[in-house]
Simulated assay, not measured.
Amino acid sequence: MQIISTNIGKPTPINWNGQQTTTGIFKYPVNTSLLLEGESVAGDTISDRKVHGGIFKACYLFSADHYSYWKEKYPELDWNWGMFGENLTIEGLDESKIRIGNVYKIGNALVQVTQPREPCFKLGIRFETQEILKQFIDHGFPGTYVRVLEVGEVKTGDTLELVKESESTLTVQQFYTLLFSKTKDIDLLKLAVVNEALPASKRERLKRYL
């Protein structure tokens, strides 16, 4: 896996349900390295820290491999890396194989895979239609957030080197499916509620299904 683009967003004013707010989802490639800090990427915009940023959502990674699929669905859009609001566009990232809890060295930062991205209305604003939300969920390749274990800089061309594979077999894609499925897979639930790489609040909510 390799970084092919580093992306940063500036505060962008938007109107949603008659109210003015801002978003950082309009991210675009930059020619500089990014500093991954404890709860965010330095210089990036996080408009609503209730749902973005923080220890378990410090940096968002999305796979370059899925861009062709979405370009075919939305050929009229002005495409560039960062379209999904990701800080790092990664070639070779496969959510069906990456385990939640995996630890990677990237640049001189150390990160841990925490949770998939759950789409909100701001992705719909970027794509100019809220229909993207269901399509994004159904496609099943949401990218992943990471926790920053060691602050450091990353740049285009850096590779993700697996330092420690999670003892849990729960993958990012499996957990993503679990979140949105009406009928919860009990075996996956059992893996999720004890996986400490996931936020405690998420694990507590899932316990009610057991």
Results as ranks from 00 to 15, higher is better:
Met1Arg: 04
Gln2Arg: 11
Ile4Asp: 10
Ile8Cys: 08
Gly9Ile: 06
Gly9Ala: 10
Thr12Tyr: 05
Thr12Ile: 10
Gly18Tyr: 04
Thr21Val: 08
Thr21His: 04
Thr23Gln: 02
Thr23Gly: 05
Gly24Ile: 01
Ile25Lys: 00
Lys27Thr: 12
Pro29Arg: 03
Val30Ser: 04
Thr32Val: 11
Leu35Gly: 07
Gly43Leu: 02
Gly43Gln: 03
Thr45Cys: 09
Thr45Gln: 02
Thr45Gly: 01
Asp48Asn: 09
His52Met: 04
Phe56Glu: 07
Cys59Ala: 15
Leu77Lys: 05
Leu77Cys: 09
Trp79Thr: 14
Gly82Thr: 07
Phe84Val: 06
Glu91Phe: 11
Gly92Cys: 09
Ser96Gly: 08
Lys97Ser: 13
Arg99Leu: 08
Ile100Arg: 00
Asn102Cys: 10
Lys105Gln: 15
Ile106Asp: 01
Val113Asp: 10
Val113Phe: 04
Arg117Pro: 01
Glu118Asp: 14
Glu118Tyr: 07
Glu118Cys: 11
Pro119Ala: 13
Ile125Gln: 07
Gln130Gly: 14
Glu131Gly: 15
Ile137Tyr: 06
Ile137Asp: 05
Phe141Met: 15
Val146Tyr: 00
Arg147Ala: 10
Val151Phe: 01
Gly152Met: 07
Lys155His: 13
Asp158His: 06
Glu167Ile: 13
Gln174Trp: 02
Thr177Asp: 15
Thr177Trp: 05
Lys182Trp: 03
Leu191Trp: 00
Ala197Asn: 06
Ala200Phe: 02
Lys202His: 06
Arg203Thr: 13
Lys207Tyr: 10
Tyr209Ile: 13
Leu210Lys: 07
Leu210Ser: 13
